[in-house]
Computed example of a mutant assay.
Amino acid sequence: MTIEYLTFGIGISFISWIIGMIFNNILVKTEFYNSLSHLNFIENKTLNKYIGLFYFKWVVNNTFFKFFNQKIKIRNKNTVLADIRREMTIAEISHLIGFVFVTFIALYKSISVNPLFGLTIMFVNVFLNLYPSLLQQENKRRLDKLMKRKLTFGTR
Rank of each mutant, 00 (worst) to 15 (best):
S94A: 10
T89N: 03
Y33E: 14
K109Q: 08
Y5T: 06
L53F: 05
V126P: 01
F127C: 01
L146M: 13
K71R: 06
A82N: 02
P115Y: 04
E43C: 12
E138T: 06
S16Y: 13
L6W: 12
G154Y: 09
F127E: 09
R142G: 14
F23Q: 06
G52Y: 10
R141H: 12
Y50W: 08
E92R: 12
N44Q: 05
I3H: 04
S94M: 01
N61T: 03
F41A: 13
S16N: 06
L27P: 10
I26V: 15
E138A: 13
V102C: 00
G9F: 01
L39S: 08
I22D: 13
I3V: 08
G11F: 11
F8H: 01
N76S: 05
T46A: 07
A91C: 01
L6I: 15
T155F: 07
F8W: 11
N129E: 10
D83H: 08
F68H: 01
I19A: 14
M147S: 00
F123P: 06
I10Y: 12
G98N: 00
R156G: 15
K77I: 03
M1E: 06
L119W: 10
Y33H: 15
R85E: 02
V60C: 11
L128Q: 00
N139W: 10
Q136E: 09
F14N: 02
V28L: 07
K148E: 14
K140N: 03
M147V: 04
S94W: 02
M1C: 11
F127M: 01
F117M: 07
I3Q: 04
D83V: 12
R141F: 08
K49E: 11
N139S: 08
K140C: 11
Q136C: 14
S13Q: 04
F8S: 02
I22R: 03
N24P: 10
S35I: 15
V60S: 02
N34I: 15
E138K: 15
I12V: 10
G9P: 07
V28K: 15
M21Q: 13
N34F: 14
P115Q: 09
I105W: 04
K45I: 12
S112M: 06
G20F: 09
L96P: 01
Y33G: 11
T7I: 10
L151H: 13
I12P: 05
A106L: 04
K73C: 05
W17M: 09
I10S: 05
Y50T: 13
L146D: 03
R149S: 14
G118C: 01
F56N: 08
K73H: 03
V28P: 07
L143V: 04
N114Q: 05
L81V: 04
L130Y: 12
Q137P: 02
